[in-house]
Amino acid sequence: MKTIEIGRFSDLAQALSTAGYRVAAPVDDGGVVRFKEWTKGREIALGAVPVDSVKDFLFPRSEVVARFALEEAGAFTPVPVERFAPKTVALGVRPCDAAALAALDAVFNWDYRDGSYNARRAATTVVSLACAKADAHCFCISVGGAPDGTAGADAILRPADGGSKLVFEALSDKGRLLEAMVSDGQAVPDAPAALKKRFDPAAVGRWLAANFESPFWKEAALACLGCGACAYACPVCHCFDLQDESDRKECRRLRNWDSCGFGLFTLHASGHNPRPDQSARWRQRVMHKFSIYPQKFKTLACTGCGRCARLCQAGMAIAETCERIEALGR
């Protein structure tokens, strides 16, 4: 059995760093726990669900996707874009965030394969951390996950001996490559967090497919103020915008995160907007996760991490919406 003392967890990060990996881990950043690049000496905060997820390392907020050298009189020459895909270990990824990778893999690979995403995905080893506790917003169990789920992970760390140790278990070849960095030991794994199933996503999906024009949406979306906090925090949301930025010498075509919650997201050049109000936009968000995605990709676009509800200033909670939808369908 491979075990790690919880107090020596950053030693593992250091060992990986020494071995040439970029290490990403939850780090306490002035009171906010972020999933970010780990640097030597930093404490790894395993206790809280970070505001960002491993998504940020595979599908960054802003990324150059094309580049052009600008010349005289409007002439330009394309410049190859170097792919940024360093060998990375994502440490302490929540099982919900690891599970989200399956959903991202699907959209970035139907017909058109997104090379830069895939390169980073291939270069990343996901070491997840089973959850010993859950908060009121967690609902992985309702969307097919589990606090000790292994989907999307190359290795999993399970809390043991009352939280004083972690048991390392490799789940893939990539994960097994890390085994040598963890010492042998003995420990008794702790019970994973207990969660109650709150709704049945299949029932939610059925109602959604049949009730696009329901008055429910108008009322359900009243509180939504139309920011992108939920989408940007979501480990599955992947909508983006393409924007050119240039100076006199160079143009960079950037892929930036975007959100279906923004009013101008779908605005046509003609001025027509297919989703003119927040209820249409909130409906799109819920439908995309629980109806459109499962139809297209045979997977939900929600893994129950609860970040959207935890962060929403207006208390919009997708799990609660799903509970209400399930009740409507009964």
Partner: peptide, 8 residues
């Protein structure tokens, strides 16, 4: 992250 929650 430019989520514009502040603006909303």
């Amino acid at each position: 992250t430019r989520c514009y929650a502040c603006r909303a």
